[in-house]
């Protein structure tokens, strides 16, 4: 019985999360002595979908329907449920992305299958999975009480495996009607060309200590050097110095990048709730008593206005000599 993995596409391309969940699913399939099959919807090309073979997926089922280029949890539940039936899969893997969150929940009800969301690692030998709970202040190991199991994988939690395979692409053979698409997308406003914060491996974030929105140039410069996304504290987005989609923390976005650089952020517990699962945290703050230093791996006690431009130069030099 195959492991089924739902992969997301965007404008005809596989999202970064798709390659993460595909790699993860291939490993889970290997653990179970079976193969990983992917399910995709929308108008991505067969060539693009076949690249999932690089991550260990053997076959891709494709619901080729342009209406699936937009996300509707109802339509996608029907698509993934059909793929579950076709493959007989008992393990279904999705990404804990914005769309993945909505789909995981619906699918759990459709299949009456236990779902654990935001999973951080491969299933243990007894099949249990680990996730972050209490907003980063603890972990829980969940067991499934159903034969069918749904896992949504947290972003940046599993490395993308890169091989040379090519997956066979096969039509799912489903016909959808307009009634399957109750949600009509009428406008899309892009947040800009940068790396979307939820997917970013490197994040540069700044807080109220920067005094005003006019001082974010150095933050953007540093992010650009690193190829990082930018983020901010709630104190900053509340006064509209930065857009809301950059707000991380308990009431904002939860991120888990490899590197989170926090500039002039005090490190309130509600802020930490959104960033504590970052692999490495660097804090730059002129107050040696700032609580954030307790949650940091590396720190610089100093004035952000001096440290950040210097750090940017140092990274530039590093990249110049390493590329």
């Amino acid at each position: 019985m195959a492991v089924l993995v739902f992969v997301e596409t965007h404008e005809g391309k596989l999202r970064k999360s798709a390659r993460e969940v595909a790699s993860y699913a291939a490993k889970v399939a290997e653990q179970q002595g079976t193969e990983a099959v992917a399910i995709a919807g929308g108008s991505a090309s067969h060539e693009e979908l076949a690249t999932l073979g690089q991550h260990g997926v053997t076959k891709v089922l494709h619901a080729h329907d342009a209406r699936l280029d937009n996300f509707d949890s109802k339509a996608f539940t029907k698509v993934v449920a059909a793929a579950v039936e076709k493959t007989g899969a008992n393990t279904i893997i999705l990404s804990h992305s914005f769309s993945g969150k909505a789909l995981t929940a619906r699918l759990s009800a459709r299949l009456k299958a236990g779902a654990v969301t935001g999973v951080l690692d491969l299933p243990a030998a007894d099949g249990s999975v680990k996730k972050s709970v209490f907003s980063g202040k603890g972990f829980a190991h969940y067991a499934f009480k159903t034969d069918k199991k749904i896992i949504s994988l947290n972003a940046n939690s599993y490395p993308v495996a890169k091989g040379s395979g090519s997956a066979a692409v096969e039509d799912l053979g489903i016909s959808l009607t307009d009634a399957d698409f109750p949600v009509k997308v009428i406008k899309v406003e892009s947040e800009g060309a940068g790396i979307p914060l939820p997917e970013a491996e490197l994040v540069v974030s700044a807080g109220r200590g920067l005094k005003g929105p006019e001082n974010w140039g150095m933050i953007e410069d540093l992010a650009k050097t690193l190829g990082a996304a930018t983020a901010c504290s709630r104190a900053v987005s509340d006064v509209h110095w930065r857009p809301h989609h950059e707000h991380v923390g308990q009431t904002g976005l939860t991120v888990s990048p490899n590197l989170y650089i926090a500039v002039a952020i005090s490190g309130a517990i509600q802020h930490l709730a959104g960033v504590s699962s970052s692999k490495v945290i660097v804090v730059i703050n002129n107050d040696p008593e700032a609580p954030f230093f307790k949650a940091a791996d590396y720190g610089i006690v100093g004035d952000a206005f001096q440290v950040v431009p210097k750090l940017n130069e140092a990274f530039k030099k590093y990249f110049a000599s390493h590329n």
Partner: peptide, 12 residues
């Protein structure tokens, strides 16, 4: 609603 990298307006 928010999606990765964009905000969508939808009707239901």
């Amino acid at each position: 609603r928010e999606i990765e990298g964009a905000e969508e307006t939808v009707e239901v």
